[in-house]
Simulated assay, not measured.
Amino acid sequence: MTKLSININKIATLRNARGGNVPNLLQVASDLQKFGAQGITIHPRPDERHIRYQDARDLKSVVYMEYNIEGNPQHNFVDLVLECKPTQVTLVPDAIGAITSTAGWDTIKNQSYLTEVIQEFQRNGIRTSIFVDPVLEMIEGAKKIGTERIELYTEEFAHQYNLGNINGIETYVKASVLANELNLGINAGHDLSLDNIKFFKENIPNLLEVSIGHALITEALYLGFDNVVNMYLNKLK
Results as ranks from 00 to 15, higher is better:
residue 54 Q to E: 15
residue 84 C to H: 05
residue 28 V to M: 07
residue 152 L to R: 03
residue 178 L to H: 07
residue 183 N to R: 13
residue 232 Y to F: 02
residue 30 S to I: 06
residue 202 E to R: 06
residue 180 N to F: 11
residue 112 S to P: 01
residue 59 L to A: 02
residue 169 I to F: 10
residue 234 N to C: 04
residue 181 E to F: 01
residue 227 N to Q: 09
residue 102 T to V: 09
residue 168 G to W: 03
residue 181 E to N: 11
residue 151 E to R: 06
residue 156 E to W: 11
residue 143 K to G: 14
residue 129 S to N: 11
residue 24 N to C: 11
residue 176 S to A: 12
residue 178 L to P: 07
residue 23 P to Q: 06
residue 83 E to Q: 13
residue 26 L to P: 03
residue 218 T to V: 02
residue 179 A to D: 09
residue 53 Y to E: 12
residue 3 K to P: 03
residue 174 K to D: 09
residue 103 A to W: 02
residue 225 F to W: 03
residue 47 D to E: 14
residue 59 L to K: 04
residue 176 S to Q: 06
residue 24 N to A: 09
residue 58 D to W: 05
residue 157 F to Y: 12
residue 60 K to I: 11
residue 87 T to L: 04
residue 158 A to C: 04
residue 43 H to L: 12
residue 232 Y to W: 01
residue 22 V to K: 13
residue 228 V to D: 01
residue 99 I to W: 12
residue 35 F to L: 10
residue 15 R to S: 05
residue 65 M to D: 13
residue 218 T to E: 08
residue 50 H to R: 05
residue 220 A to N: 00
residue 179 A to W: 00
residue 206 N to V: 08
residue 200 F to P: 03
residue 92 V to T: 06
residue 198 K to H: 10
residue 191 D to A: 11
residue 168 G to T: 00
residue 89 V to M: 10
residue 208 L to W: 15
residue 21 N to D: 11
residue 129 S to D: 14
residue 45 R to D: 07
residue 110 N to Y: 10
residue 19 G to M: 08
residue 12 A to N: 09
residue 225 F to N: 00
residue 61 S to N: 13
residue 101 S to W: 10
residue 18 R to L: 13
residue 189 G to C: 00
residue 103 A to R: 06
residue 220 A to H: 01
residue 203 N to M: 09
residue 118 I to V: 10
residue 225 F to C: 02
residue 131 F to V: 11
residue 53 Y to I: 12
residue 130 I to Y: 13
residue 38 Q to V: 05
residue 129 S to G: 15
residue 182 L to E: 15
residue 117 V to N: 02
residue 70 E to R: 03
residue 12 A to L: 06
residue 67 Y to D: 10
residue 42 I to N: 00
residue 147 T to G: 05
residue 161 Y to T: 07
residue 191 D to Q: 07
residue 188 A to N: 04
residue 148 E to W: 09
residue 81 V to P: 03
residue 32 L to I: 01
residue 214 H to T: 11
residue 208 L to S: 14
residue 3 K to V: 01
residue 21 N to I: 08
residue 232 Y to D: 00
residue 233 L to F: 05
residue 62 V to Y: 11
residue 42 I to P: 01
residue 221 L to P: 04
residue 230 N to C: 01
residue 30 S to K: 09
residue 98 A to D: 15
residue 132 V to L: 10
residue 55 D to K: 02
residue 208 L to R: 13
residue 167 N to G: 13
residue 34 K to E: 12
residue 48 E to R: 10
residue 130 I to H: 08
residue 151 E to D: 14
residue 201 K to V: 04
residue 64 Y to K: 15
residue 122 Q to P: 14
residue 160 Q to Y: 13
residue 90 T to L: 04
residue 54 Q to L: 15
residue 51 I to P: 00
residue 10 K to V: 14
residue 203 N to H: 11
residue 128 T to N: 02
residue 29 A to S: 02
residue 229 V to K: 00
residue 106 D to H: 09
residue 64 Y to N: 15
residue 3 K to W: 03
residue 177 V to L: 05
residue 30 S to T: 06
residue 167 N to F: 12
residue 81 V to K: 02
residue 88 Q to I: 08
